[in-house]
């Protein structure tokens, strides 16, 4: 960071100190006086959707926010791979300098011990099953699409570190990009049933909190995930509706995006062959 040496660095430091003081003092002022606002209403209504309140917040009340945030991860993967060399474009009609690309990493896996060689692959496979378990439990217990994607891609990374180029978890290029496309596209299209039925994009027709859809749709999308909630206030029958499906799409998208980043950074990118 050449730019931050000398006078500029001092100015930046002073600005940082002023910002920090301002921020800390305002946080101190807000302590104990944070206004609950709309979140009280959200909390009061939460039991109507998923048993896990967090899942309701992220995928139902603010479900469309999460779609665009998921797209941030997708774009992150896309741009990172672009920088490595996937999809670099040049003008046909004029000569430019040749694009910057990065070479694949060099692996040295000869030094792998016997224990790692035998236990590495079961560990990676069990990590994948763990990721799948996490995504299926999204609406009842902690977990969800983001976490699942991160766990699965860490299994991929683990296998890549242990086995190098002969990665036993062999996500191909088209598989990774395809799964990302299915993930984000699927999430986006899960809004369509609600849009067609009520006019509101991504209305959760499975949970149908505001009774806007015919009961047949409510049954199709809601019943597969219906659970009985035995609480001290009584027994409730609640279904998260499309929330579990959204989580699976989310997981696919994260696997696609982070997997693409890992793939491109580890093995480089060449446009030839699969």
């Amino acid at each position: 960071m050449e730019e931050l040496k000398g006078k500029r660095g001092i100015i930046a430091l002073i600005a940082l100190i002023i910002i920090t003081i301002g921020l800390l003092s305002s946080l101190e002022k807000l302590t104990g006086r944070v206004n609950p606002g709309i979140s009280e209403v959200y909390n009061a209504l939460a039991y109507l959707v998923a048993p896990n309140n967090l899942a309701t917040w992220v995928y139902d009340w603010r479900g469309f926010d999460t779609l665009i945030e998921t797209a941030v991860i997708y774009v992150g993967g896309l741009v990172s791979a672009l920088v490595i060399g996937r999809g670099v474009v040049q003008m046909k009609k004029c000569k430019q300098e040749s694009p910057v690309t990065s070479k694949p990493l060099e692996f040295r896996v000869e030094s792998l011990t016997v224990i790692l060689e035998y236990l590495g692959i079961p560990a990676a496979i069990l990590l994948i099953s763990y990721g799948i378990m996490i995504v299926t439990g999204s609406s009842t217990s902690g977990g969800g699409g983001f976490q699942c994607g991160v766990i699965m891609t860490s299994a991929y990374l683990l296998a890549a570190i242990l086995y190098g180029k002969n990665n036993p978890i062999k996500f191909g290029k088209r598989f990774i990009i395809g799964i990302g496309a299915i993930g984000l596209g699927g999430y986006a299209l899960l809004g369509l049933p609600g849009y067609l039925a009520t006019g509101y994009w991504q209305y959760n027709i499975g949970a149908d909190v505001w009774s806007l859809v015919p009961s047949i749709l409510h049954t199709i999308f809601g019943d597969p995930f219906r659970l009985s909630l035995i609480l001290k206030e009584g027994v409730f029958y609640s279904t998260p509706g499309i929330v579990p499906l959204i989580n699976i799409a989310e997981a696919f998208n994260v696997i696609g995006a982070i997997g693409l980043i890992y793939f491109a950074f580890l093995y480089g990118w060449s446009d030839e062959g699969e």
């Binding site: 799948i132 036993p168 995930f225």
Partner: peptide, 25 residues
């Protein structure tokens, strides 16, 4: 017993098959 108790296991099974096909071992 509600359907919501079985569906996650079924989904996990299907996802497992999808990712199992990508194993090269």
């Amino acid at each position: 017993m509600m359907l919501g108790e079985i569906t996650p296991s079924l989904i996990a099974f299907i996802l497992g098959i999808i990712f199992g096909t990508q194993l090269n071992y």
